[in-house]
C-alpha cells in the first residue's frame, strides 16, 4: 500500500490499480496473505487491545476464525481500528475485508449502504442503570428523569422513542465520550445512565460504588450485532456467515478448541464429521479446504468459549449468556445446520 502511495504522492504520478481489484475478495485475501478486519477503537469485551497491544474480544475472535478457516492460521489477520463514522466507508472502499465492529444490523444499513450482514454474533439491547438509592424498580417510574447518554448514537433516539411511547417527560444530558457520561452519572448529574447493556456492564466498574447501582429489567431496543461484508461477493459473504455458523454449531455439538481434533478422529456422528471436514466437501464449496471449520474452532474455540473468555461471567464484564445462549438452552442462538 504505502509503496504505491509514497510513489504517487512524492512523484505526482497518478495511482495505478493493480490486478487486485478484478479478483474476488477471497482471491485478494489469499494473495496478500491476511484478512484485514475492521474493529472498534476500543470496546471492552468486543474489540480492544490488551496490555501487549494484541486485539482481543468476541468481534476479534470472529475475524481470527475467518482467517483460520482460510489460511489454517488464526494469526493471519490484521486489524484496523475504525471510528463509527468511518466504518462503512472503510468496508465499501476495500480498505478492510470484514467489518466486525459491534455494528447493529438494521434495514437501512443492509439495504442502502451496499453492505450485507453475515449474521449476528451478539444480541444486545439498550438498557438503563439507576442508583439503587433512587428506589426505582422499573423504567416506567422514570417520569421526569435526567438521562445521561452519548451524543449522536441510536441510544439517543431509542430513549426518546421509549419515553414518548410511554408518555413520560425526561431531560437528556448527552456527552461525546463514554468516560464523560460515566463521570457525569457518577457525580449525580443525572438519574439514569443508558446505553447498550453490554456497555453498561463494562462501564459499571468505573463507578465509585458499583454495587449501589442497578440495571433496570427493561430492554428498550433490539441491537443485533454482527459481522458485515461488501455486497456483491457472495462467496466471501458465505465464508463469513458459515464460519460464524460453524462456531455456534460447534458449541451445540460440544466441540471445543481442545477436543476438536480428537472428536473428529473418534466420532461416527455424521453431523460432527460434516462440520469438521471428515465427510463431504463443504469447505471446497466455499472455496476453502475441507477442514476450514476445524481450523476456525482450534484457533478461537467455539462460540461459547469465545463468549466466556471475553464477556462472560468470569471476565470484567460479567455478562450472563441471557438471550445469547443456544436455542436449546433458553437463548435465541440458532445456527443453520451444515449438511
Amino acid at each position: 500500500m504505502i509503496r504505491r502511495t509514497i510513489l504517487s504522492a512524492a512523484a505526482g504520478i497518478a495511482m495505478f490499480a493493480t490486478g487486485a481489484n478484478a479478483a474476488t475478495t477471497l482471491e485478494a485475501v489469499k494473495a496478500k496473505g491476511f484478512v484485514q478486519c475492521g474493529v472498534s477503537q476500543g470496546l471492552p469485551g468486543f474489540s480492544n487491545a490488551d496490555d501487549s497491544g494484541n486485539w482481543t474480544g468476541i468481534d476479534v475472535d470472529l475475524c481470527r476464525a475467518v482467517a483460520a478457516a482460510i489460511f489454517g492460521d488464526g494469526s493471519k489477520v490484521k486489524f484496523s481500528p475504525l471510528s463509527a463514522k468511518q466504518r462503512f466507508t472503510a468496508l465499501g472502499s476495500g480498505e478492510i475485508d470484514i467489518l466486525s465492529r459491534n455494528t447493529t444490523w438494521t434495514m437501512t444499513r443492509d439495504t442502502q449502504l451496499g453492505l450485507n450482514f453475515a449474521g449476528v454474533n451478539y444480541y444486545d439491547g439498550q438498557g438503563m442503570m439507576v442508583p439503587a438509592g433512587l428506589g426505582v424498580k422499573s423504567a416506567t417510574e422514570l417520569d421526569g428523569a435526567n438521562i445521561c447518554t452519548n451524543t449522536g448514537t441510536t441510544t439517543e433516539l431509542n430513549i426518546t422513542d421509549y419515553f414518548r411511547a410511554n408518555n413520560m417527560s425526561f431531560n437528556l444530558v448527552a456527552f461525546e465520550k463514554a468516560d464523560e457520561v460515566v463521570a457525569a452519572y457518577d457525580a449525580g448529574r443525572c438519574d439514569v445512565y443508558t446505553t447498550d447493556r453490554s456497555g453498561l456492564a463494562a462501564q459499571r466498574t468505573k463507578l465509585t460504588n458499583p454495587d449501589a447501582h442497578l440495571v433496570l429489567p427493561e430492554i428498550i431496543s433490539k441491537e443485533p450485532l454482527g459481522p458485515v461484508v461488501r455486497q456483491g461477493d457472495d462467496q466471501w459473504f458465505n465464508i463469513v456467515r458459515w464460519t460464524l455458523n460453524a462456531l455456534i454449531n460447534a458449541e451445540e455439538m460440544g466441540i471445543t478448541k481442545a477436543n476438536a481434533k480428537s472428536r473428529l478422529a473418534g466420532t461416527e456422528n455424521p453431523a460432527i464429521k460434516r462440520l469438521l471436514g471428515g465427510e463431504g466437501k463443504f469447505g471446497e464449496e466455499l472455496g476453502l479446504s475441507n477442514d476450514w471449520a476445524l481450523n476456525a474452532i482450534t484457533a478461537v474455540g467455539n462460540y461459547g468459549e469465545s463468549y466466556e473468555a471475553n464477556v462472560g461471567p468470569n471476565t470484567p464484564l460479567k455478562l450472563d449468556r441471557g438471550v445469547n445462549a443456544l436455542w436449546n438452552k433458553g437463548g435465541i442462538l440458532y445456527a443453520a445446520p451444515i449438511r
Binding site: Q41, G42, P44, N48, D51, K177, A183, K206, L317
Partner: peptide
C-alpha cells in the same frame, strides 16, 4: 483513550 477501553484495568481513576 483506547487503553481506557480495556476492562481489565477499569476503575474510576483509570481515565
Amino acid at each position: 483513550q483506547s487503553t481506557l477501553a480495556d476492562a481489565a484495568w477499569s476503575s474510576p481513576v483509570q481515565s
